[in-house]
């Protein structure tokens, strides 16, 4: 039976919080970004799409390294924050949140981009001609017709954030309650040769990852058959 220590619970709560925040932020910025990529005409689209997809091929440590340089006290962003009397973002929850958002970006943008591309612009244009403003169109036309894409984007971003390790370790250190997420804790348990604890948490993540993929494929199947 799985028995978790208080520090395990701290990490689980932190991981879930990170996953939820990341997913929320990604949906909020990923939706307009994916829409722009799918329907815009700017010549910059290809470049932006490549940048968004970078985390797919980049080692997470590279991302973590640059974020550390950027967000740390000597970095451009971290330094500016210090200059106005705030703390820099390295080794903070905000820091790993920024890393997660960037790192999981393709997993939110790609499914939305595909859903928006498949939707096309016709329905949205018709809705506009019928008097629906942009927000109205989003909730009454785009969202209902690309629901599958949103479900997939949300589950994948959430799950991918849970699996993140390298970037978080680089930018976050492994500070309990702030940046020590499940994957880092598992690594720590293994290094301390506490295999029972490492096992339990690993199993938990394994089961969760399976569940997420199951949902994604089930949603895919369902919306494939229902879509006109």
């Amino acid at each position: 039976m799985i028995e978790l220590s208080p520090s395990d619970w701290v990490a689980i709560r932190l991981t879930l919080k990170l996953g939820l925040y990341t997913t929320g932020i990604l949906l909020a910025i990923g939706t307009p970004l994916a829409w722009w990529l799918a329907s815009g005409r700017s010549p910059l689209r290809t470049a932006v799409q490549s940048i968004v997809a970078l985390p797919l091929v980049l080692p997470p440590t590279v991302l973590g390294f640059y974020l550390l340089l950027l967000l740390g006290p000597r970095g451009w962003i971290g330094g500016s924050l210090e200059a106005i009397g705030l703390t820099h973002l390295a080794f903070t929850f905000t820091g790993i949140l920024i890393a997660s958002v960037i790192y999981s970006m393709p997993f939110a943008v790609q499914p939305l981009f595909q859903a928006f591309t498949a939707l096309g612009r016709r329905h949205v244009e018709v809705a506009a001609s019928l008097g629906a403003g942009p927000i109205d169109r989003f909730f009454t036309v785009i969202l209902p017709l690309t629901r599958g894409g949103f479900i997939i984007a949300a589950t994948l971003s959430f799950a991918h954030t849970l699996g993140e390790f390298g970037a978080i370790l680089m930018i976050g250190g492994s500070i309990p309650g702030r940046t020590k997420v499940l994957s880092v804790l598992i690594y720590d348990h293994a290094e301390a040769m506490n295999y029972t604890a490492a096992h339990q948490l690993s199993l938990l993540l394994l089961a969760f990852a399976f569940l997420v993929l199951f949902i994604v494929y089930a949603v895919n199947r369902r919306f494939d058959t229902v879509r006109p």
Binding site: R122, E125, V126, S129, A132, G133, P134, R137, L145
Partner: peptide, 18 residues
């Protein structure tokens, strides 16, 4: 914007909200 022009639009292909 189109939403404020009060124009009725009908396209050649099917454009009803499914």
């Amino acid at each position: 914007p189109l939403a404020k022009r009060r124009i009725g639009l009908v396209f050649q292909e099917h454009s009803l909200l499914p």
